[in-house]
């Protein structure tokens, strides 16, 4: 079984988001970048399934510039076998999906996994685009993934419940909790990751279909109105008469 796990490089979840003075770009200064937390579910589950199915391989794919390599190495340290970096800035979901589809077509992967969405762009799009570009099923968002030969059983979250879905390889799944407990690298993993192959390939010549022109922060709150705990019922009156939300 050949697994392809797509990871993106995102600001750490504790990051305070700021932009350049013209609000055209995210301000990367001083920001720690990590593997997208949703992608960690995809990566760890792929490694678990590889361990359960001897002879399998896990390839990590990132669409990004050279500054993403520390996180690609981290994915290798967690247990992926090799990595591919498509050398391009990930301009939009369509562009990224085209790169993933091109790599997937080339490599003949059986299972293509990624996180539900990236925590920076929040597109929740790439999974479906890759599936459609390759003409294979997508299961998104998946909370559980089990494999038996080339047959997979997944739990897909729907609003208010879940669907049990069965598909055969090849397929795409976008992953979320509680699929597995994401792993962190151990010392041996970190040592071996240094020598695992990381191939850099050029992007295919496709163009983005969307363009970010400006960023904005949410409006600031006016300040909190404190109600005395002894008189807590007063809050309910304010919510009805002043805020008018109940």
């Amino acid at each position: 079984m050949k697994f392809l796990v797509c990871i993106s490089n995102v600001p750490d979840t504790t990051t305070k988001i700021t932009f350049t003075p013209d609000n055209k770009e995210f301000n990367k200064a001083g920001v720690q970048f990590v593997i997208n937390p949703w992608d960690e579910y995809a990566l760890t589950r792929a490694i678990e399934l590889k361990e359960a199915n001897p002879g399998s391989t896990v390839t990590v794919l990132n669409v990004g510039e050279a500054d993403t390599e520390p996180n690609i190495r981290k994915a290798l340290a967690i247990g992926a076998d090799d990595a591919i970096r498509v050398n391009a800035a990930p301009t939009d979901a369509f562009f990224v999906a085209e790169q993933i589809a091109a790599v997937a077509k080339d490599g003949g992967y059986d299972v293509i996994l990624m996180g539900k969405e990236s925590i920076d762009y929040n597109g929740f799009q790439v999974h479906g685009m890759v599936g459609e570009l390759l003409g294979i099923p997508t299961v998104a968002p998946a909370m559980k993934l089990d494999m038996s030969g080339n047959a997979a059983t997944l739990e897909r979250e729907i609003e208010g419940g879940k669907e049990i879905v069965q598909v055969n390889t090849p397929f795409v799944a976008s992953c979320q909790q509680p699929m597995c407990e994401p792993r962190i690298p151990n010392m041996r993993g970190i040592m071996t990751a240094r020598t695992k192959p990381l191939k850099v390939v050029a992007a295919t010549g496709s163009a983005a279909r969307t363009q970010v022109t400006e960023y904005a922060l949410p409006p600031k709150k006016q300040g909190v109105k404190l109600i005395d705990a002894a008189n807590a019922g007063e809050l309910i009156k304010l919510l009805r008469n002043e805020a008018k939300v109940i």
Binding site: I119, N122, V212, Y215, A216, L217, P218
Partner: peptide, 12 residues
């Protein structure tokens, strides 16, 4: 965008 921390204007 940024998981609720910001908004972006996007041209389609």
């Amino acid at each position: 965008a940024f998981s609720g921390k910001a908004f972006s204007d996007v041209v389609l």
